[in-house]
C-alpha cells in the first residue's frame, strides 16, 4: 500500500530541460509559480516556502525545506515539512521531443497520522474487496 502515501503527477512542458530546471531552482521564478521562498541551489541548503498559516491544523504557514538532491538538469529533491507533514518532494526532468516531461512525486505522507491512518484501516481486509469498489461506484455516482 506504499502507493497510498505518495502523490505522483507528470506533465509535458514544451520547453527544454535547462529552462524547466531554471524555473525549479531560481528563487524568484519559484516564487512566481509556487510560493515566496529563500531557496538557493545548494545541496543541504535549508530554506522555507511562505504561505497562509492554518492555525486549526497546527500549520504556521512555513514549509521547512532542505535540498536533498541536486542533479542539474535531471533531478531535484526537497524535504518538505510543515504542520503535520514530514514529506519529500522529488522533481525529475526527462527530455521528450522538443520539450520536457516533468515528473513530480510528493511522498512520505504518514500512515501513523491519526487522520491518515483511518484510510489504511478502511482499506484493510474485506474493505479492499467488492465493498470498497461498490462504495467507490456509489461515490462516483454522487453529484
Amino acid at each position: 500500500m506504499t502507493e497510498s502515501t505518495a502523490i505522483a503527477l507528470d506533465q509535458f512542458l514544451p520547453h527544454p530541460p535547462a529552462k524547466v530546471w531554471r524555473a525549479l531552482t531560481d528563487s524568484d521564478l519559484l516564487a512566481r509559480w509556487l510560493m515566496p521562498n529563500n531557496f538557493r541551489p545548494v545541496l543541504g541548503h535549508r530554506f522555507s516556502f511562505r504561505t497562509t498559516p492554518r492555525p486549526g491544523q497546527g500549520f504556521d504557514g512555513l514549509v521547512h525545506c532542505e535540498v536533498l538532491e541536486l542533479d542539474e538538469p535531471r533531478r531535484l529533491r526537497w524535504a518538505w515539512r510543515g504542520g503535520r507533514l514530514d514529506t519529500v518532494v522529488s522533481w525529475t526532468l526527462v527530455p521528450e521531443g522538443r520539450g520536457t516531461r516533468l515528473f513530480l512525486e510528493h511522498s512520505g505522507f504518514d500512515p501513523d497520522d491519526p487522520v491518515q491512518r483511518g484510510t489504511f484501516t478502511l482499506l484493510d481486509g474485506g474493505w479492499r474487496s467488492h465493498v470498497w469498489r461498490r462504495l467507490e461506484q456509489t461515490l462516483t455516482a454522487l453529484p
Binding site: L13, A23, R32
Partner: peptide, 12 residues
Amino acid sequence: RLADLREVLDGL
C-alpha cells in the same frame, strides 16, 4: 502549481 509553472515558462 504545475499549471502556473507552465505559464511562467511560456513567458520566459
